[in-house]
Design a protein around this nucleic acid. Sequence first.
DNA 1: ACCAAACGTTGGTCGTCCGAACATTTGGGC
DNA 2: GCCCAAATGTTCGGACGACCAACGTTTGGT
Lengths: 159, 159
Amino acid sequence: MENPSEKTPARWESLPSWLLTQTANHAHRLVAEGFSSVGARGYHYRLLATLEQFGPASQAALGRRSGIHVSDMVATINELADRKLVERAPDPSDRRRNIISLTPAGKRQLRRLEKQLAECQDELLAPLSPEERQRLTELLSRLLDHHNRRTGTPEEPWR
Amino acid sequence: MENPSEKTPARWESLPSWLLTQTANHAHRLVAEGFSSVGARGYHYRLLATLEQFGPASQAALGRRSGIHVSDMVATINELADRKLVERAPDPSDRRRNIISLTPAGKRQLRRLEKQLAECQDELLAPLSPEERQRLTELLSRLLDHHNRRTGTPEEPWR
DNA sequence: ACCAAACGTTGGTCGTCCGAACATTTGGGC
DNA sequence: GCCCAAATGTTCGGACGACCAACGTTTGGT
């Protein structure tokens, strides 16, 4: 959206789907800028955060928990492993698996990303009062829940 | 997000930026499905709607009005012109320009897309009451306005 | 022992957004 | 009238998130 100008509002501009995707664009841009200032992108944060929250795990399990597709997981882990933010070790008890774990440097990076993320939330919601922010997140949560339910959420098999 | 499972909620899942981008993903998916069932995608609708609303115009002007990048405009028009939904004619008064106009078939396609779009809005907002839908769109509009203002909106030069 | 299932990996697709570069044409200032 | 800055259309390419198909290896249950 390089140049939305020519003032006259287009007639789709009041559609909820438009409002959502466009504000999401702004949100994504803000977050991406914050992350890239530390040399990262969304998948990096999600993976690091998942690792810290649930501990070391196989790539497949990490994919399920973080919502990152297995095939993207490979590239993401490669990128993080190159920067020594994450470690990939073979699972001795199952030779199909790699066990991914967070390094101290990875933890530090995660702290940086979280700081960026927090700042972005504020910039994103700047024009809203605390009560309005609350109502917005509540409404969005309901929407997200609803659609996540209908878009299959298989369940963790075991372990 | 093929498989968000493993129930335990990740800690970023309550962040406004996450809620926004994810619900926007669902919205986008719904709309894209609706559009693709008629063989179109977002840019097609935006271009057709812009043409109907503002009348025939040059590609650059259409880009400004629809928020589609000039370089994407080329491909979009190509695709629509191939299907005879749009016509590309040289501007006799300015040989740099093409004048793009909507064909009757294009108008019919636009009607189809609008129908799809309307259905999507309802599916998207299904879990919300009319009042809640109202409040959501109001909050999102405020956010979008705010960020659009800060992200340059140059103005239409003339004509 | 067999087979279905899980795992990691490779190599794509798609849509939206965006930038750089280029040739052509134009209009305004001088 | 001339010149230059600006607008126009076009091509190419990249980032990012989301996704899919296929393959070889390894596994666990039967």
